[in-house]
Write a protein that binds this DNA or RNA. Sequence first.
DNA 1: ATTAGGG
DNA 2: CCCTAAT
Length: 640
Amino acid sequence: MVLQKRLYYGFDGYQVPSIPRATRSDRRRCSFRKKVDDNQMCAFDLLATVAGKLLLEEESSPSSSGRLSEKELSPTLQVSIKKEQQHEDKILKVEHCGGLESMITSDCSVNVAKSKIQVGSFENKVELASSGYQESFDCTVVDKFKKQRNIELQNTGNISNIAKADICSLDDPTLRDRKHPALVSVESSMTLPLGTDHFSCGSFPAIREDVKLVIRDDDENSSGCTHPSSTTTKSFRAPSCVGNRRPRNGFASKYWKVTPKLKREEKHFNADSEVKPVYHHRKFCYKYQRSQRDYPIKKRKLYYDHSSVPNPDRGISYKGITSFPGKKFSCDASASSATMCGASGKPVCLPGEYGTFQSEDSHVKLRIKSFKIPELFIEIPESATVGSLKRTVMEAVTKILGGGLRVGVLLQGKKLRDDNKTLLQTGISDDNKLDALGFSLEPSGSLASPPLHHEDSPFPLTSDSPQPLTRYSPTPIAVLDPPSLNLGSFVESDHDSAPSPPDMSIDKNLTDSRALVVVPAMNVGASAVVPARKSKRSEAAQRRIRRPFSVSEVEALVQAVEKLGTGRWRDVKLRAFDNAKHRTYVDLKDKWKTLVHTARISPQQRRGEPVPQELLDRVLNAHAHWAKQQAKPETCRRLL
DNA sequence: ATTAGGG
DNA sequence: CCCTAAT
């Protein structure tokens, strides 16, 4: 056996190829050290941005630009619109001067744009000061003993938007045992009263321990909070427990991670304290899974988004509460900036061409009852104050609004993409169709257009090379398919918005729709300092998205290792994965490690895409061979 | 920047 | 995949 192997290797190919050491620069491009996103903005920046954008859209009329509308896959806010009723509610009238969309948008701008967050000087207040007046949201826990509680967002304004949301076990005993921070999930229903803005959830019961809050729609039949306890251990299962609409394999946890820096910091603290589990692979469940229970308050961080980025502004922001747009923009600055530029006053998209609107037409009167925020996850330590909870929710909401919004119009579940059609043509004006009319606020710039090529494949020419959008779609879809996208009954009739390949090391897709927030328990109350507008930079390094090796990749790896050995990962990388930007030599080394392991365990124990036994055999052989080489420096040297 | 290992 | 120590 040994002989055979040796002969084989000795003759065939285990000769070190004369691949010149890559130059420094070459190497550099193979490295993927955490990149800092320069485009991060705090929630407030984002809000301001949206505001600006909305205003802009009001002027320049949104949409119609095919490009934008083609990517409407991340509706974040849903607006249910109803035909005018006898309420004194705000009535939106379709004016002959613009299309429905602009009308809606403009309405939004009025309400959102004019508001700017003004963090009160005391903990329980986060107020949105609108120009000229101040309104507020009232968030009240109606029944604190029920598992499903209602939170009413009563607006004191002129709009009767009373949103109800259920809070799942605010203090459910089963959750009490959780050592994790509370998880607040606002699923599709925290209504955002259009014109009111005082958010004061006054009656939240005192939060003594980490609990999970799930605020969800009343009408959401479901699921979600049926077994809160099930989420007690793995705190981040929570998300999946919440949404019943689609399987979301722990998307939250998947992308949630603590940055190295933070971890390091934490290490100095109580081992009990903890931050999230992040990996979905049990086997790879990373350390740092302590509960935050005993975590030094000051060290608790607030994360936003599933990507949960550590607070870069802590210390500057008001007591650690900061929002994180995530670092998704860096990869696609163009897209995001394009969207974001709204704040700076530049039109983002070309003014759409409004269809001919007959002024003679009878007006269609619509009433946007409320905007719903599909889903929002918040993790907050038990020791957090109510005030911080409020702020957290507020920020999460703000964040959602912050990505820049676009209005989508849906009729009977179908998205109306032709901005040039008149309401009459689309049937919107039909009385009986009004009920089927829906609006959605969608993030407008966070999604990059899906690349058509796949430079990642190490085997560009190999036919069996995985097609990016096919093979990898699962992951990105999970990301792009946040529950928030499930506009209730709405169905994205045309999924034109293909999920961008996971290739984007910086997943912009993770940005919007959802927000995962961890509130620092600390002196939130004392805070009240307007967060510094650090719209840029954040060393928040996100965990890279997981991208399982395809069989073809494995094959390439095996081949390269057979040739180069197990100690020259840089060369392996250059040789077989030079154009797979997302595979670093460390990745390759790791993969090899797992391959060896995989090859040694029984097929039944293997998971994921099965690797041909043949390859595994080669792995074992090569591994053994090179191990031997290593043992014999002389031989090795000779080979080299 | 790489390598080697532990998590 | 991440994190680190050691090169």
